[in-house]
């Protein structure tokens, strides 16, 4: 196994994991969504790395070229980007409503308020 051959993938893993870490470790709801964006974008980088052919060119047919990079992952990621922004939009909308209902967007404060509410309900 060649070290350099896998270099791209290892960095991509590092990127994915930093996004993933932000999602689970941070308590601010907006920050979590940013982490999610980074996590997803990094997965896109993984896909696009798969599609690359060294010496190839963008998959737009032209008589000058014979080697093209793989167009299929590009298509998948176009779809995934859209899915990603749709999720972000919905998540942000939820965060706004949570701010209105709870007065905060910090996870621990929200959970505390929920516990209080449950305590007072009984």
């Amino acid at each position: 196994m060649n070290f350099l051959e896998q270099y791209n993938y290892w960095i991509v893993i590092l990127l994915m994991m930093s996004g993933f870490y932000i999602v689970i470790a941070h308590g601010n709801l907006i920050k979590k969504l940013m982490g999610l964006t980074v996590f997803q974008t990094s997965v896109f980088i993984l896909y696009i790395s798969i599609s690359k052919v060294i010496g190839g060119t963008a998959p737009i047919l032209d008589d000058q070229y014979t080697v093209y990079s793989n167009p299929l992952p590009h298509v998948l990621i176009l779809t995934a980007i859209v899915v990603g922004v749709a999720t972000t939009a919905l998540g942000l909308a939820l965060a706004v409503r949570i701010k209105e209902a709870y007065g905060t967007v910090e996870e621990d404060v929200i959970q505390e308020k929920d516990l209080q509410q449950e305590g007072s309900a009984e």
Partner: peptide, 21 residues
């Protein structure tokens, strides 16, 4: 319900991203 939905959104999206990987 808002908080529940948000939590589901985060965990669901992590799940979907894992599936994507």
């Amino acid at each position: 319900s808002l908080w529940a939905s948000y939590q589901y959104l985060i965990m669901g999206t992590i799940g979907a991203t894992f599936i994507l990987i």
